[in-house]
Amino acid sequence: MNISADSVLIAENISKSFDGNRIIDNVSIYLKKGEIVSLLGQSGVGKSTLFNVLSGLYMPDSGKVLSNGDDITGKPGKISYMLQKDLLLPYKNVLDNTALPLIIKGEKKKVAREKASALFDKFGLGGCEKKYPSQLSGGMRQRAALLRTYLSSQGIALLDEPFSALDTLTKSAMHKWYLDVMSEIELATVFITHDIDEAILLSDRIYIMTGKPGQITTEIEIKEKKPRKENFNLTEEFLNYKRMIVEKLL
């Protein structure tokens, strides 16, 4: 494994059991500055469990999580984490929802709101500041959750199936938007997905998790340069990647 010096996040030999059941076994991953990495695997293989460990919510049975050289194993608050559902708080308007992580980090409410609202246009949320989450479309809720994740991050984010709840059309629009935004902001990201196309389209690298207990069995680099051409998903290379992944997933 080529853990390079510019890794912002390193997980070493993580294992985690629940009630004596080993869920993930000896998992190691790394994430470089500004990199987008996806984690592919079947349902129940332990992807969310790995994220819960990386985010510090769960203490692993063994192994370490390092961020920029600091040991952050079992210490939440260092890496921002977007859980499997958008989890916007229904009783706060969109602006206060997105500003929440800044307030928790100790910013004054006013400053936090200003910082958040400065990004509303970029995240396609302009004019929605005072709305409640229930008044937004699915895509907008997802973008609001992404904005909140971005604001709580110090350069590293974990996204658990960020686009899986969206319909196909919204999803592909979100992919375009996401790549655009990511080219402007610096946010090293690991995201979980079930969607092989999505993984190839968005990622610089792909980890494949299989087995019981779950292990990282394959690491694939997507060599296509970013920004990727419009019809990348129709090219021979894309299909080759896809073929390879399908094979490894089973």
Binding site: N52, S55, G56, L57, P76, G77, K78, I79, S80, Y81, L83, Q84, K85, L87, L89, Y91, K92, L100, P101, I104, K105, S152
Partner: peptide
Amino acid sequence: VDADAVSLLRSMGAGRLRIFFTVKIPSAL
């Protein structure tokens, strides 16, 4: 209260009191 909302706040580094006032009380209202 949604256990995941509590996890979310914990992942942001929120303490017990903050979680109480930010998610527990509003969901109890």
